[in-house]
Amino acid sequence: MLGEHLKGNVRFLESVNSWEEAIRESAAPLLENGSITSKYVDDMIQNVNTNGPYIVVVPEFAMPHAKNENSVEKTGISFLQLQEPVMFPDDKEVKVLFALAAEDSTGHLDLISDLSGVLMEDEARDELKQAKSEKEIIDLINSVE
């Protein structure tokens, strides 16, 4: 399920200048394929400004997301890997971002469930940080599922 959704939504970057840019870059595939509007991207950034960097769910892994206020067209998720970590507020380093867009609060739970399964495994986290291609990422995720 998670693997399916990530197809075409996986990106790799050398570095970014700010955590805001990291969120924008991570959400770019969803914006491009029309899953979300640009307001959703702004909301994700605003969410961190308001509530703090709690979207860094595990050290080095962030899951940017926000409430759907007519800003999500379709449930989706995208992946961004950074070579150089970016600093989130409170000095939290992040190397991998999963931007999450959910139409409602239940439809995406399979995605979340799969994602937590992956992130709970130490080895899988290491591989997510080091993988070089979309295929590697998706194979890894499918293997954990």
Binding site: N47, T50, N51, Y54, I55, V57, M63, H65, A66, K67, N68, L100, A102, D104, S105, H108, L109, I112, S113, L115, S116, G117, L119, M120
Partner: peptide, 18 residues
């Protein structure tokens, strides 16, 4: 619990159930 009740809280709950 989290701000939207959809993202990180769902992840936390799923992981904890596991």
């Amino acid at each position: 619990a989290c701000d939207a009740g959809a993202g990180s809280s769902a992840m936390g709950a799923t992981a904890f159930r596991k």
